[in-house]
Simulated scan of single mutants.
Amino acid sequence: MAVINANKVRWIGAVLGAFVLISILLNSNLLGVWAGPVMSMGVSESGRYVVSAHTDNKLILWDLQEKQWNTLSGKANLYSAYFVPGQNAFLWQDTDNTVTAQTVDGKVLKRFQHFPSYGHVISADLETYLSADEHWNVFSGYGDTKRTVLSDGISPSFLGSGKLFNLAIDRNNTFFVTAGVDSDRSAIADHSPLNSSQRFSKYGGVTLWNAVTKQPVAKLRGNSSKTHATISPDGQWVVSADEAGIGLFWNTDKPEVRHRLARYHSGIYLDDRPFEVGDPRNRDKSGLIDTPAGLNDFTIAVAFIHNSKYYLRFGNNSHVAALFKTGSPWPVKYFDLGKSPKLVTYGSQYDRNTAIATSPESGTLVMGHQSTGGISVYQFDPEELTLERVWVVE
Rank of each mutant, 00 (worst) to 15 (best):
16 L>N: 01
16 L>D: 01
16 L>W: 00
22 I>Q: 05
24 I>T: 12
26 L>S: 01
30 L>W: 13
32 G>F: 10
35 A>H: 02
37 P>Y: 13
40 S>P: 04
43 V>S: 03
43 V>A: 06
43 V>Y: 06
45 E>T: 10
49 Y>D: 10
50 V>S: 01
59 L>E: 07
60 I>G: 02
66 E>H: 05
67 K>F: 00
69 W>M: 05
78 L>Q: 14
81 A>G: 03
84 V>I: 14
85 P>T: 12
92 W>N: 12
95 T>I: 07
95 T>F: 00
97 N>C: 10
101 A>C: 12
107 K>D: 15
108 V>G: 05
114 H>W: 14
122 I>Y: 07
122 I>V: 15
125 D>L: 11
126 L>A: 09
130 L>D: 08
130 L>Q: 06
132 A>N: 07
133 D>R: 03
133 D>K: 02
136 W>V: 03
137 N>L: 04
144 D>F: 01
145 T>M: 05
157 S>L: 10
158 F>W: 10
162 G>W: 06
167 L>N: 10
173 N>S: 00
175 F>E: 01
178 T>I: 09
178 T>Q: 06
179 A>Y: 03
180 G>V: 08
180 G>E: 08
181 V>K: 10
186 S>P: 00
189 A>P: 01
189 A>L: 11
189 A>M: 05
191 H>I: 02
193 P>E: 14
196 S>N: 11
198 Q>M: 11
198 Q>S: 11
199 R>D: 11
200 F>Q: 15
202 K>L: 05
205 G>N: 08
208 L>E: 08
215 Q>L: 14
221 R>Q: 14
222 G>K: 10
223 N>T: 03
225 S>H: 14
226 K>W: 04
230 T>M: 03
230 T>Y: 07
231 I>P: 06
235 G>K: 06
235 G>Q: 07
244 A>W: 09
245 G>D: 08
245 G>V: 08
248 L>D: 06
249 F>P: 03
252 T>Y: 03
258 R>T: 13
259 H>T: 00
261 L>C: 13
262 A>M: 01
265 H>K: 15
265 H>M: 04
281 R>H: 12
284 D>N: 15
284 D>Q: 05
292 P>D: 05
295 L>T: 14
305 I>W: 02
305 I>H: 01
305 I>C: 10
306 H>C: 03
308 S>G: 12
309 K>L: 13
310 Y>P: 08
324 F>L: 14
331 P>F: 09
333 K>G: 02
333 K>N: 13
334 Y>F: 15
335 F>N: 04
336 D>G: 04
337 L>A: 03
341 P>I: 05
344 V>A: 12
345 T>I: 00
346 Y>E: 15
350 Y>T: 10
350 Y>H: 09
351 D>N: 14
353 N>S: 13
354 T>Q: 13
355 A>P: 10
358 T>R: 03
360 P>S: 00
361 E>T: 09
368 G>I: 02
368 G>E: 05
370 Q>L: 15
371 S>D: 15
373 G>A: 09
373 G>L: 09
377 V>S: 07
380 F>I: 06
387 L>S: 08
389 R>G: 04
390 V>Y: 07
391 W>I: 05
